[in-house]
Design a binder for these strands. Structure first.
Length: 852
RNA sequence: GGACGAUUAGCUCAGUUGGUCAGAGUGCUACGUUGACAUCGUAGAGGUCACUGGUUCAAGUCCAGUAUCGUCCACCA
């Protein structure tokens, strides 16, 4: 027997370990059709947040559903080494302990990083367990493990051979704190206060000067030209002459280039090819020298004279003062502009000339765009609109900077000897080759995740069976970084999309609608929610409270409401079990069932069909609403009440059968409590996890009985309604009106009416009684009562009457409209007619009430 | 500047291809505790579906435009 109250802590205790030990999470039954999801690998940098809980819950729901529905369901777990993020954390930890990570040898530092990884990986696994995720740990992978590292090397070598990977000097986004290059996606732009410094660049041997405006004056040390638009009448005559570079007093040319926009600022641009991507291009067009003026840590280098060694911002300040002194500064114009920050260190990113490795994107991206045109080969986004993000990125794509000046990651498989480069799996045999110090961008390995985890590039059985994956689940914020890259790498190396469907969800926001973030401190720890309300409540809340692709506001009250729902389920189950003492389980015999038994079987049958349909479409909010309504309103409010009155052995069969199906349909959403209850019901399988998902059953369609019960429900509801409105609190009579359509129904179900309405049924009204006629769809019933009741609210009745008159007029007009009659489908027209009749009858009734 | 999303009951959100679609949860009001559940039951109140046009017999639903909020991208010498 169950306790009176649902206790999520007791219920969730120990179940996960049992499932795990029994091997239920493991895929590999070759007799079944495979179904695959690989988890988006969380970073080994910390705790899982609510977003992870949401993302993984959705996946667990899909995988548990498919497993119960007869698939060999593989959900492959794993984690991401998360290069910059993890390195930053490990460094911070070392510094806390008074160790400067830069003083360490690479090997020594890596030891610390691996220790960190082990610790955090364990935390993450513990959190997965608390969430109840049915992951196949026998196939768990890590982006830096041996197999995946080999896959990474293979991809690098192959792309290099094809000429799709090259090494070159480019302007990249440089993080002076982490001292590494960043990809464009790792730069976050924020609107900030800044200034335009207007500086005089005097024309050689002249009093004339050009007014140059810049936000980064300190870069002038790297200026190798000043550009004006060749069509700009103001400056045309100066092209080919030279200006004096302020402070440095060096001569640099004035060039004509389209890059200079006459409309913008002064129309004059200083050109710093080593510190600005546009200037780099201009420099290439005009064969300008590239002068790097900073060190990797953001201090000024030997090309800046007396400013050498200053931090870039200190230098800026000093330089501006000096310009002012020399009367070279015209003005400082305060502006708001967007400034790039490193996603991880938050340092202001410096565009910086540096030698890096790149992936040539155009051919890879074109392949994606091509495949997305073919409906059998494309990745199907759910909701569809997110495909646009993929396409957009593949259209605007630029070459991908993949080298990072870090230690934590896959070391680039390239060796140098003088000007020679060797790219391969192993170091060349001869002496003198030195391996590239850098590692690859984390996303370079994540991009291979759907197949590297299955053993690729080896032609493993796993790969053959589980690639392509069936669905990938992730947030829309990660489409550019990850989804895009998996798609082009999958197409490039496996010649096939990495996954058939891509289910996209939104972001979690706080109750005020703000993004959850560390800086706001508004993050919610899913583990705390689980402690308070249970994983089942959290999961159901996460999965059912938003439409696909929409953001989700975290609202504790809703989690609480979900807990209440589970408690309701718990108590309904408790009721069922209380009635099973003298129960003999048998097969359900249709011929022995009552109308209400058939009614609930029919209802459930329809729900099963609906739930399956929406499960397939990943519309979990709809599934949640359907199940909620079915359980609370149909099963608890009506069927259990009917069952109390007529508790036959067959009814017990039905109670158990329906409850088990309810539990099975809820199981993917709330695995723990459904298992707990299921185990306590007679003739259950070893675990609900491996039981069969409910199927629609053609034997359980009972339209006649459904009608009957629906009529009974209507009578009861409408009488309750009148009773409540008129405040008849004493016992009253339901008169069985012999002339009425409902006569037999009432006669046959006397006990139901008497119990649920707390009334007595009589055949004739007593002479000293008042009576009220209760209108129903196909007639009416009469209730009689002794004594007085509160007067009917005349004002309210009048309002209702007016509403009815308006509605009747509207409907009559509609039905008189030839266009409507000709065009609308028949069932709509009939429905309108029916409603019209109903309203007319109700109007008549109100008229009588008002008279009385 | 471009793209996308949101705008529906006090609050948080659902509303598939136009017609049982104006809904749910929560909150609020009234009544109700003799065995599944007061973390409950029964009943009730509430919304010109942001605004303006258009298409249609028929528009939260489709089209065009406007407003507000949010997100992403691009630009920013």
């Amino acid at each position: 027997m169950l306790d009176k109250k649902y206790n999520h802590i007791e219920v969730e205790q120990g179940k996960y370990e049992k499932w795990y030990k029994k091997g239920y999470f493991e895929a590999g039954d070759l007799s079944k059709k495979p179904f695959t999801i690989v988890i988006p690998p969380p970073n080994v940098t910390g705790k899982l947040h609510l977003g992870h809980a949401w993302d993984t819950t959705l996946q667990d729901i899909i995988i548990r559903y498919k497993r119960m529905d007869g698939y060999d369901a593989l959900w492959l777990p794993g984690m991401d080494h998360a290069g910059i993020a993890t390195q930053a954390k490990v460094d911070a930890k070392l510094r806390e302990n008074g160790i400067n990570p830069r003083d360490m040898k690479r090997e020594e530092w890596l030891k610390h990083a691996w220790e960190w990884k082990e610790e955090y990986a364990k935390n993450i696994r513990d959190q997965w367990a608390k969430l109840g995720l049915s992951l196949d740990y026998t196939k768990e992978r890590f982006t830096l493990d041996e197999g995946l590292s080999y896959a990474v090397k293979h991809v690098f070598v192959e792309l290099y051979k094809k000429g799709s990977i090259y090494r070159g000097e480019r302007i990249i986004n440089w993080d002076p704190v982490q001292m590494t290059a960043l990809s464009n996606e790792e730069v976050i732009y924020r609107e900030e206060k800044g200034a335009f410094y207007h500086i005089k660049y005097f024309v050689e041997n002249s009093d004339e000067y050009l007014e140059v405006a810049t936000t980064r004056p300190e870069t002038l040390f790297g200026d190798t030209a000043v550009a004006v638009n060749p069509n700009d009448e103001r400056y045309k005559h100066l092209i080919g002459k030279k200006v004096v570079l302020p402070i440095v007093n060096k001569l640099i040319p004035i060039i004509g280039d389209e890059h200079a926009d006459p409309e913008f600022g002064t129309g004059v641009v200083k050109i710093t090819p080593a510190h600005d991507p546009n200037d780099f291009e201009v420099g290439n067009r005009h064969n300008l020298k590239r002068v790097v003026i900073m060190n990797p840590d953001g201090t000024m280098n030997e090309n800046t004279g007396i400013y050498k060694g200053m931090d870039r911002f200190e230098c800026r300040q000093k330089l501006v003062e000096d310009l002012k002194k020399q009367n070279l500064l015209i003005k400082i114009e305060e502006i708001i502009h967007s400034v790039g920050h490193s996603e991880r260190s938050d340092a202001i990113v410096e565009p910086y000339l540096s030698k890096q490795w790149f992936v040539k994107m155009r051919p890879l991206a074109d392949r994606v765009l091509e495949v997305q045109k073919n409906k059998d080969q494309k990745v199907n986004f759910v909701p569809e609109r997110f495909e646009k993000i993929l396409k957009h990125w593949m259209e605007i794509t630029y070459d991908w900077c993949i080298s990072r000046q870090l230690w934590w990651g896959h070391r680039i498989p390239a060796w140098y000897k003088g000007d020679e480069i060797y790219v391969g799996y192993e170091a060349p045999k001869e002496d003198g080759w030195v391996q590239d110090e850098d590692v690859l961008d984390t996303w370079f390995s994540s991009a291979l995740w759907p197949f590297s985890t299955l053993g690729w590039p080896e032609k493993t059985n796993l790969l053959k069976r589980y690639y392509p994956n069936d669905v990938l689940v992730t947030g829309y914020d990660i489409i550019p970084f990850w989804v895009c890259r998996m798609v082009f790498q999958g197409l490039e190396f496996l010649d096939e999309r990495p996954f058939r469907d891509c289910l996209i969800h939104g972001l979690i926001r706080d109750k005020q609608g703000r993004k959850m973030s560390k800086s706001l401190g508004n993050g919610v720890d899913p583990m705390e929610v689980i402690d308070k309300y249970g994983a089942d409540a959290l999961r159901f809340f996460l999965a059912t409270n938003s439409a696909p692709g929409q953001d989700l506001r975290y609202d504790e009250d809703k989690v609480k409401a979900t807990w209440n729902f589970i408690n309701k389920l718990w108590n309904a189950s408790r009721f069922v079990m209380m009635n099973l003492e003298d129960y003999t389980p048998t097969k359900i015999k249709v011929e022995e069932l009552s109308s209400s038994d058939k009614w609930i079987l029919d209802k459930q049958n329809k729900i099963i069909k609906l739930v399956r349909k929406h499960m397939e479409q990943y519309e979990f909010n709809v599934v949640g609403a359907e199940l909620y309504h079915f359980i609370w309103n149909d099963f608890c409010d009506w069927y259990i009440e009917f069952a109390k009155i007529n508790m036959t052995n067959q009814t017990k069969n039905v109670l158990v059968y329906v409850l088990k199906n309810i539990l099975k349909m809820l199981h993917p959403f709330m695995p723990f409590v459904t298992e707990e209850i299921y185990q306590k019901l007679p003739n259950s399988d070893e675990s609900i996890m491996i039981s069969e998902y409910p199927k629609w059953n053609e034997e359980y369609e009972f339209s006649y009985d459904v009608n009957n019960i629906n009529n009974i429900i209507e009578i009861i509801t409408k009488i309750r309604n009148v009773k409540s409105e008129t405040n008849i609190s004493a016992k009253f009579l339901l008169v069985n009106n012999l002339d009425d359509n409902y006569q037999f129904l009432i006669n046959d179900n006397r006990e139901i009416f008497e119990k649920l309405l707390k009334c007595t049924i009589v055949d004739e009204i007593e002479s000293d009684m008042n009576k009220i006629d209760v209108p129903l769809t196909y007639g009416s019933v009469i209730i009689g009562y002794k004594g007085i009741h509160e007067k009917l609210d005349i004002e309210k009745l009048k309002q209702e009457k007016q509403k009815l008159i308006d509605s009747i007029n509207r409907r009559e007009k509609l039905l008189a409209n030839q266009g409507f009659i000709n065009n609308a489908p028949e069932h709509i027209i009939n429905e309108e007619k029916r409603k019209l009749e109903e309203e007319k009858s109700a109007l008549k009734n109100i008229g009588e009430k008002l008279k009385g």
